[in-house]
Structure formats: structure tokens, C-alpha cells
Simulated assay, not measured.
Amino acid sequence: MAEFLLNEILDKGTIFDYVLNGITDGVYIVDQNRRIIFWNKGAEDITGYKIDEVLGYRCSEDILNHFNENGIPICELGCPMLRTLKFGEVVKMKIYPLLKNGKRIPVMSHISPIKDEKGNIIAAIEVFRDISKEEDFRILQEKYNNLISKYVSSATVQRVKDLLLNGNEPKSGKRDLTIMVLDVVRFSDYSERHTPEETAKLLNQFFSICEVITKENSGDIDKYIGDAVMAVFVDANDAINAAGKILFALEDLNERYKREMADTIEIRIAINSGNVIQADIGPVDRKELTVIGSVVNTAYNIEKMVPPNEITITEATYSRLKSTKAFKFYNRINVKGKKEPISLFTFSPLKEILRNHSQYEFVK
């Protein structure tokens, strides 16, 4: 019966063909070798790929090249289709397919097995929906929450939410966020050339710049560690704009210090996006609301390897940007804790582009 239905779907002009091509969601079916054997009109509209361009191909063959929300390629590693075909698992997850125009968008994907009368899996079907508008609304809502938190502490806001919704104390949880890590290049050398007072003055002024610009761009400073800053953003586009404005402000700060102390500083900026754990960390009498996890660790590890005075981002962040034209591919690097190399992109030359942009906002 299942094979009959599958043939009915694949045959042109049948009722199943009309139904599946009449819905706006993307629908495609793969055989046991993960090769596409059905591709509906909704899939064409969402991805830009026509049916003749995908039939007989796998997603990994330069068609969709799916990434998960942490920027990890899943077509070859952890393919949800493969899990469904092998184990009959029903999968629901947010993924970022590569469209024909070269962009990535968030889609909610549902994958189910197709079985014959004996229960053998003969194919898998995926239904996916463009959730870009939902993601924009989520980001807008979280920006609003961040705005309110400027006047009422974020801990208080979250506590009130939890009490109103559940009557419970706030709990730790996962959030889809963008992490920006930056630090001063060769800061130890700088501190040896100057008095403690001069060093502290420079750091305080630089940190003040970072804090003001981060808040102006709907972000939050998570922590200062020595000469490093970690900031958190709901929207990756805000993180890029904040990083650009910080670099632009650094130029003015360096001009002043060049006149006063005949010295300047450089900074490295690394940005990564994905699911992080946000929780109150610390002993009972001194807790700190912070973010932890592999996304944070990757940002810190990358920051040590990126060029100074440029914005370097991961594929996970690149996939979330509304415009990527300012960025160029930089390198694929091995990062501690990651099985596969990570693709990095840089924005350069920053100073010239920013000075020619009245709003300093190059991601819109």
C-alpha cells in the first residue's frame, strides 16, 4: 500500500501530486540512498531550485547543504534524513538550507519515514516551512525585553515572567544567541610600556566604549576578563553593527592616545552564534547570570586566531545575517572541541567602508 501511495505521489497528474504541489510548504521525498525523487512547488518557491535541478541528487551535492542552528553541516554528519531512513525516527528541527541565490534562511523541518506493508522503510519525506518572519518576530520580542531590561534589571524581568507564567523561580535554559568576544592584542606588551594608571585609564575608556555601543545595538555585556570583553546579542546583525562601531570608535581613541602617549592598540573580534546555556552560575551568595557552552568556547578559541582590527565571524553567524556582501571567506580552521574545521569570514577593510557609511550599519 505504501509503495502504491509513493508511486501515486511520484506520478504526475494524480490527486496526491495536486495536493502536495498545492501547499506552500516545501515537500520532498528521498529514496533509501537519500537521493531526491519528489520535489514540490513549495520547495521550488522557498529554495529557488526547480525540480529538474534536484531530482536524483542528494542535499549535500551543492544543493541545500543544510546547517543546523549552530553552523554545523548536517548533510554528511548527523543527517536527520539518514536517522529517519535507518531507524524510522521522526525528526523535527530548525535548520538553515543553502538557497540557490547563495543565502541561508531558517526553516522548520519535519521528517518522517515512508514504510511498506511489512514495516520496511522505503523512503523518507521532509516537509519544511520558511520561518524567517517568526524568527524576526522572536528577535523583535527579545529586543523589546532587552530594552525594558535597561530600566529594570534583566533578573527582575525574568523573575516576574516566570512567576506570572508558572509561579516558579527562574530556571536555567538554552537560548539561540550570538556571542561577541574581543580583546586587546599584545596587551601585556602595552602594560609594560606604561604606568598602571595609564593602563587602567586606557582599559576603562575602551570598556566604556564597548558597553555604550553594545547597549545601543540591543546587546548586553556578559563579562570583562582582564583585557577581554564578552557581549551577548539576540540578533546577529546587531552584533556585527556593534563590532563595526567599536572598531570605528577605536580609531578615534587611538588618535588621541597617539598624541598623548605616542602609542596605539589593536583588538581582535570573533563572533559566533548558536544555542548556549544561560544560567545563574556561582556559589549561593554570589551568582552571575551568564552564558556557557560550546558556542561560547568556540568564540573564545577563534578570537585567538583571527586578524586584528577586523570582524571575523563563523558560518553560524554568517547564516543569520540579512546581508553578507561586506564579508569575504577567510579560512577554514580546526578548533578545539570540534570534529570538523570551521569556516570563517571577515569584514575588511573596515575603516574605509565604515567612513563611507553614514549610519555605520552595514547589515540591514
Score class of each variant (00 low, 15 high):
Ala242Asp: 01
Glu216Val: 02
Gly219Met: 04
Ile209Tyr: 03
Glu216Ser: 11
Ala228Gln: 09
Val232Cys: 06
Lys215Tyr: 09
Thr214Ser: 12
Lys258Trp: 12
Val181Gly: 06
Leu164Asn: 09
Glu211Lys: 14
Arg256Phe: 13
Lys201His: 10
Leu165Ile: 15
Cys210Gly: 08
Asp222Lys: 00
His194Thr: 09
Val234His: 10
Ile246Pro: 02
Leu247Tyr: 03
Asp238Glu: 07
Leu182Met: 12
Thr178Ser: 12
Leu253Thr: 01
Glu197Gln: 15
Phe233Cys: 04
Arg159Val: 03
Met180Ser: 08
Lys171Val: 13
Glu197Cys: 07
Val212Cys: 03
Met261Cys: 11
Asp220Cys: 11
Asp176Tyr: 09
Asp263Glu: 14
His194Phe: 13
Lys215Phe: 11
Gly226Ser: 02
Phe233His: 05
Leu163Tyr: 14
Asp176Glu: 12
Leu164Gly: 06
Ile179Pro: 00
Ile265Ala: 02
Asp252Met: 05
Glu169Val: 15
Leu203Ala: 07
Ala200Asp: 11
Arg256Gly: 04
Glu260Phe: 00
Asp227Val: 06
Lys161Trp: 11
Glu169Ala: 15
Asp220Leu: 15
Ile240Tyr: 02
Ala155Gln: 11
Arg175His: 13
Ala243Arg: 03
Asn241Ser: 08
Glu260Asp: 10
Val157Cys: 01
Val232Asp: 00
Ala200Glu: 12
Phe207Tyr: 08
Glu251Ile: 05
Ala231Asp: 03
Phe187Gly: 07
Asp235Trp: 04
Glu198Thr: 02
